[in-house]
């Protein structure tokens, strides 16, 4: 198995549900609960999968397992993230609706920190105005006087939704079952 990019495991192992990984995306700060995060690796050697929607960046080899990488920015309906030296892939264990776990990589601009955010400092999501789909947001956390969007990972990385989007993307051109 060839050279796998060195992985930096998240240093914090404590099982407190109030810990979040914060990261930057298009100049905005987001947070996700650390429990679903398996590891964070540097971005590199990605294989593009053709005929997939823009938010599916491609696949990477994670120590022998093939893991899809989702471009979070594109998933929010924005531009594809530009790759920089600080681009990272956050490996998350997502679950399909049938309960099958699947690892998915989340492409982000930079990871910032693992922070403890008390539940009291998390506000319910606004019904609009955050410029991303409301069901993607689990709450707005106040960190150092600024609002950080805490993401609802199950929704953002809903395999069923993403695969049906992929299917829909192919269908107009194909309609493969029509015959």
């Amino acid at each position: 198995m060839g050279a796998v990019t060195p992985s930096r495991h998240t240093a914090v192992m404590a099982d407190e549900d109030a810990q979040y990984l914060t990261f930057m995306l298009g100049g905005e700060m987001f947070a996700i609960g650390i429990l679903g995060i398996k590891e964070i690796i540097e971005y590199g050697s990605l294989t593009v999968v053709p005929m997939m929607p823009a938010f599916v960046r491609g696949v990477i080899n994670l120590r022998g397992a093939v893991v899809p990488v989702v471009d979070l920015s594109a998933r929010f309906g924005r531009q594809n993230s530009a790759i920089t030296r600080r681009s990272c892939v956050v490996i998350i264990e997502a679950r399909a609706d049938d309960g099958q776990p699947q690892d998915i990589g989340l492409l982000v601009d930079t990871v910032s920190a693992v922070q403890e955010i008390p539940a009291a400092q998390i506000e319910p999501p606004p019904s609009f105005g955050a410029r991303i789909r409301a069901d993607f947001i689990s709450g707005m956390a106040k960190v150092e006087g600024k609002f950080v969007i805490v993401l609802e990972v199950d929704k953002v990385l809903s395999i069923d939704e993403m695969s049906s989007l992929a299917e829909a993307g192919q269908m107009p051109a194909l309609d493969a079952d029509a015959r």
Partner: peptide, 12 residues
Amino acid sequence: PLGKLFGALRGI
């Protein structure tokens, strides 16, 4: 296998 995410992908 590419996994469920690529379930709809044809040709691969």
